[in-house]
Design a protein around this nucleic acid. Structure first.
Length: 266
DNA sequence: AATAGGTTCAACCGCGAGTGA
DNA sequence: ATCACTCGCGGTTGAACCTAT
């Protein structure tokens, strides 16, 4: 169902992603994070725009993403929240673990919009006294129940989502912190040692496209490293490289502040 | 079996917000 | 204050897939 591939005037590929591109992108981000989307494709070794890479990661490759059929409960959450806040797909997505905003938007446009319109039509007919209320229709009432539950829970439907409130507040929405935020969605395994920064890694990371090894394909749901450990190690051992980092627009000031504020996390 | 029309969903596009120089 | 840049969001598109005839 994907679009056929082609190249734009800048030589960047557009259209459907190949398995090879997916592997390169996923392996790179799981190893290094998405520190800068516009520069990332070059380092990951894919001929795509940063925007395209971000979209592919967020909507398809990100760990813990669900694919496939929506449950009745998920549908009810979407309908309920849409009634409340409108087309705020990213906000709705925060209430549905494992669903991307794009997927929710598609779900609404292809299935739920019609259902909501039907419900509205029935509701208006009832209000006008044209039809008796249909007590046998569970859909209308389950949406209402979802509303009530959302209100009871203070807007958070799933208790397991509470971790999102425990995320360190980010001084910047970009770079390292967004990668950490997305990474925390996956299981951070405490028994995995963060990668150390050896000479070879430094050279490859900043000067050469990333070529995933056979063993860099990381099972879904497992993060090998924390960006805090990653950069801490880097600063500690290779602080002379800071100029290089700054030319790549690394958010040093924000990072340092953030590390100070949240050092207990590690 | 062929095909026309409808449906689905991955991916693109444009825009606005945020940030730093 | 202004400009340049990145990021993220929401609307839209287009090709594959499905279904009815």
């Amino acid at each position: 169902m994907a679009r056929s591939s082609c190249y734009d005037k800048n030589g960047l590929k557009k259209g459907a992603w190949t398995e090879d591109e997916d592997n390169k992108l996923a392996a790179y981000i799981q190893r290094y994070g998405h520190w800068n989307w516009s520069l990332l494709p070059k380092f990951a070794g894919v001929s795509r725009s940063g925007k395209s890479c971000r979209l592919r990661w967020m909507n398809y490759l990100r760990p813990n993403l669900k694919h496939g059929n929506f449950t009745e409960e998920e549908d009810n959450v979407i309908v309920g929240l849409h009634n409340k806040i409108g087309n705020k797909w990213s906000t709705i997505a925060t209430k549905l673990p494992g669903r991307s905003d794009n997927e929710i938007k598609n779900r609404w446009n292809t299935h739920l919009k019609k259902r909501a319109l039907d419900d509205q039509t029935v509701s208006e007919s009832e209000h006008a006294g044209i039809l008796e209320p249909d007590h046998a229709n569970p859909k209308v009432y389950s949406v209402k129940e979802t509303y009530l539950k959302l209100q009871e829970d203070g807007g958070i439907l799933f208790p397991e989502l509470l971790y999102s409130d425990q995320l360190p507040s980010s001084p910047s929405s970009s770079g390292l912190f967004s990668c950490w935020s997305s990474g925390i969605e996956s299981t951070v395994s405490s028994d995995l040692t963060p990668q150390t920064f050896d000479d070879e890694m430094v050279g490859n990371f900043w000067t050469e496209p990333f070529i995933p090894d056979n063993d860099t394909i990381i099972p879904s749901g497992i993060n090998l490293w924390s960006p805090f450990n990653f950069v801490n190690d880097f600063i500690y051992q290779y602080s002379s490289c800071q100029d290089v980092l700054m030319t790549n627009e690394f958010p040093w000031t924000a990072y340092n502040t953030h590390v100070e504020d949240n050092s207990e996390i590690n």
